[in-house]
């Protein structure tokens, strides 16, 4: 464990807790894409299949449970909680995210480190996580403006993978033969997808005006 990875995990945990808290407290999910939340639930479900078979550490297991619990709770709130579901913007959140699932699955079947069930699903979860934010970014552009909690959610979500990139650089230089091209490339693509959001987020913060 290094400071970059710990900071990345904390940032990631805060991003999902910020969103869950917002939805739970104000009973609203305005501006939030349920499709991105569903993609994240699938990412965690397929990445943490080994949660019961291979034990890494208490921290690792605890964080996996936090991510699984929060992502499925957010989807549940947005789909089945009456008050919250009423605030869901169905007309605007129209990204065909099942195509993302299918293409990532096909890609994982083609490009992976080992052709085993767990490894292919793990690789699939990396590809899917890289593009999972797309429905949310499209919804953001359509609804033109964004409340600051959702903005913070996206900012933290983008930031966590950026911190992971620093972690991979650190591990590459400190651990012999620590090379994982698939993880690195997907992590880089994921972070780059947030680039223009970061730009506008920074502008709105600098000019102290509403993000839109």
């Amino acid at each position: 464990m290094n400071i970059f990875r710990l900071a990345g995990d904390m940032t990631h945990m805060f991003s999902v807790l910020v969103l869950l808290l917002k939805i739970h407290t104000i009973k609203s999910c305005a501006g939030v894409s349920v499709k991105t939340q569903e993609l994240y639930a699938i990412v965690f479900a397929t990445r943490y299949l080994d949660i019961f078979t291979s034990f890494v550490s208490i921290y690792n297991t605890f964080m996996k449970l936090v991510f699984l619990g929060s992502s499925f709770s957010i989807v549940w709130y947005m789909r089945y909680h009456k008050a919250v579901h009423r605030t869901y913007d169905r007309e605007q959140d129209t990204f065909r995210h099942w195509f993302l699932v299918l293409s990532c699955l096909l890609l994982a079947l083609l490009i992976h480190e080992k052709f085993t069930f767990l490894e292919v699903l793990w690789t699939f979860s990396l590809y899917l996580e890289a593009v999972a934010i797309l429905p949310q970014l499209v919804l953001l552009q359509r609804t033109r403006n964004i409340d600051n909690l959702t903005g913070q959610y996206i900012f933290l979500l983008g930031g966590y993978r950026g911190l992971y990139i620093l972690n991979w650089i650190y591990r590459y230089f400190t651990e012999p033969h620590f090379v994982h091209w698939i993880t690195w490339i997907t992590g880089l693509v994921q972070t780059l997808l947030y680039a223009d959001f970061f730009y506008y987020y920074f502008l709105s913060w600098k000019n102290n005006k509403k993000l839109n």
Partner: peptide, 10 residues
Amino acid sequence: NKDDLTKDEL
């Protein structure tokens, strides 16, 4: 073994 090492990240 190598596996556990690679899967130590979230």
